[in-house]
Amino acid sequence: MARKQQQKVPALNRNRRQQVQAENDPRFRQDEPRPIHPKRNTAPLIAQTAKQKQYIAAIQNFDVTFGLGPAGTGKSYVATMIAADMLDRGEVDRIIITRPAVESQEEFGFLPGELADKYEPYLAPIKEILYERLGKGATDYFVKSGRIEAIPLAFMRGRTFRDAFVIFDEAQNATPGQMKLFLTRIGDNCKVVIDGDAAQSDIPNSGLVDAANRVSHIPCVRVITFDRSDVVRSGFVSEVLAAYASD
């Protein structure tokens, strides 16, 4: 019996099939780098400086904590780690994050996408810390379900914070009026951290220190002030701050 002649695959089709297989193989997709997220950090939060220890204790024991001082002292990092832990343990229903959108002067209309897309650049630094503490999957789930919410400062009016951990990041770029607006949103069972560096304000009339001074006498409020000796980001940052201290 004559053997059935094997049908030849045209070279063009064979090459195209190999190309498609390569495109679908993640080992060969060098044109689309995969995002790298840190492994989830579940270790207990340990203060790296005496002032950080005071800051952690203040957040845990007071309703409203101001963290004032230079960059690299862990103000945002510590607050976000504690917020993530409280959300994970069910001690708060959600995390609310806000910061002034100074670069766009609180005007989001000219930026592409929906409001969440427009505000994404301002949420990104906090989101990286949430990824570290909760993991990317859990963080994305909480964001989609509304349990982690980013609210532009311009959209605060009429809101009330309840059963939430609220982080007001980069508050040195808020005016006195915006600080008053934010502080009057705080409702029951709410933990609030307001952080910023008055020396790095991008506006002429920052309301951060003014607000801290006005409400520091209230029993549920604690103000923690960091200085250059509390910088933990790197020795280089300490040197940079020292170099600019004379200005």
Rank of each mutant, 00 (worst) to 15 (best):
T139R: 02
T98F: 07
R16M: 14
F165W: 02
P70E: 03
D63S: 13
T80H: 06
I56G: 02
E170I: 07
D93R: 13
E106L: 07
K75T: 00
G177W: 12
S206G: 01
S145E: 13
R16T: 13
A79Y: 05
G158K: 06
L111F: 04
R233D: 01
L87R: 06
E170F: 10
Q200L: 10
A57D: 02
A154S: 06
I36F: 12
V232R: 04
A116R: 15
P26I: 09
R40L: 11
I194F: 10
G69Y: 06
G90F: 07
S216Q: 14
V231S: 06
Q48H: 08
V215N: 08
A198V: 04
V20P: 00
M179P: 05
V193W: 08
L181Y: 10
R157N: 01
D169P: 00
V237R: 00
P219W: 05
Q30Y: 14
H217T: 07
M156T: 13
A242V: 11
T225D: 03
R185L: 11
K136T: 07
R94Q: 11
N13A: 15
Q200A: 08
D25Q: 07
A124W: 06
D169G: 03
I46V: 13
I148F: 10
S145D: 12
D169S: 02
R157V: 04
I129K: 02
I148Q: 08
L153V: 11
R162S: 14
A2V: 14
R16I: 14
I82R: 10
L241Y: 05
R133H: 03
I46A: 01
P26S: 08
I148D: 02
A11V: 15
F108H: 03
D227Y: 09
L208T: 08
L115H: 14
P26K: 06
P121D: 06
P38W: 09
F66T: 08
S216G: 01
D93N: 11
T80L: 08
K180S: 09
P38I: 12
S246C: 13
E128M: 06
F110T: 10
E114S: 05
P10I: 03
T42L: 09
R233N: 01
M156Q: 14
I56S: 00
E107P: 00
Y122S: 06
K191G: 03
A164I: 10
A47V: 06
R94K: 14
V231T: 08
A199L: 15
